[in-house]
Design a protein around this nucleic acid. Structure first.
Lengths: 188, 188
DNA sequence: TGAATCATGTAAACAGTTACATGATTGG
DNA sequence: CCAATCATGTAACTGTTTACATGATTCA
């Protein structure tokens, strides 16, 4: 039984790769680059080794088709292009609207929550370091926003970017508040 | 070699459990309840089975001490109390200030990013559902805030809660914006 | 009577990272 | 000359979830 039908439940990562391939034909290496430049900010970027095995899985499911390209001055490439079946699978996943939990894992908040086990000074330093980092991230997002603003393309990229901007900004406001509260606490 | 010294590198989850145990002596079951009520919001809540194996690991490292308690009307309990070694390990982890990456994994944003592969209507519905959910979450956080406001205790719980509030609020503002932009798009 | 709570665990599977291997080319 | 980039992969390991098992008690 189960000749080969009845779409298997794939992890979100598979659809992330499939989705990137829906933009254009790419090699595993390309997928990694694109992931690092976009979905990394609101989802995450898989290790190269995982991307390659993900591609093999997608190919074995018929969601993508592999095309070998020999190069002279570079190692051979394997280019992957999404198939009609793959497009259908991607659409089905996009349209499947069951509870979509959001994972927000902050090591820093975890540490802060256990703050009573250390000194306020240590935490303040960590939060200040974090603030520097977050300011930089905000600047990067604003730079991407400028680049994206011109083209009418990238409507959805724009929307997701706005989300990152909003969260980063909120984070920064909160950091100011937390650092202020901490200093008030340690000086009293 | 390695008689038993030189603190092994543990995953953050271990310190999450250890940190909860720094508040008071608890059973694995209790740890799960507490995790679901606090760190779940800004870190995550491990499965019960993982908590139990985490506790065994912490015990084997000497970070916690186990105490068996027989009960009449309930299954036997194993209560875990943090040791001095455990407290030191927790503090060392808290003070270790090397780059602390924040993971923000949003399935919804991933889907939205690939929005061109489906219709705006589908996405609008998903975002509206999400908005309902986020409003509820905001209400819950505000309720917790009220409960926490009274006691001078829970300063660090207060700070982390403010972070959740800030992010949830930012999310809501963005959702309004995104839904508006999407409807403008689909009607034009 | 059946679901929820208390309480702990095993087994199997999967997701994901890290370390490693290979090897040519390009740029400083 | 060394590092970075292009390009793909294997092997080993760890983290985490899911499904299952057990069994008493309480509450609707």
């Amino acid at each position: 039984m189960n000749g080969e039908a009845t779409a298997p439940k794939l992890p979100a990562t598979s659809y992330a790769v499939l989705g990137l391939l829906s933009f254009k034909e790419m090699s595993g290496y390309d997928v990694k680059q694109h992931a690092d430049g976009s979905i990394r900010y609101f989802f995450w970027s898989p290790a190269s080794s995982q991307i390659y095995s993900e591609l093999r899985r997608l190919a074995s499911l018929g969601y993508v088709r592999e095309r070998r390209v020999a190069q002279e001055r570079r190692p051979d490439k394997r280019l992957y292009r999404i198939t009609r079946t793959g497009e259908q699978a991607l659409r089905a996943w996009l349209e499947d609207s069951q509870p979509v939990p959001d994972v927000h894992k902050s090591l820093q908040l975890l540490k802060l929550f256990f703050g009573q086990s250390t000194s306020p000074g240590v935490l303040t330093e960590q939060l200040e370091e974090r603030r520097r980092h977050t300011r930089q991230a905000l600047a990067e997002f604003e730079e991407i926003e400028r680049l994206l603003a011109d083209q009418e393309q990238g409507f959805y990229a724009h929307l997701t970017l706005q989300s990152s901007l909003a969260h980063t900004h909120a984070e920064l406001v909160w950091l100011d508040y937390a650092i202020e509260e901490l200093s008030r606490r340690s000086s009293s």
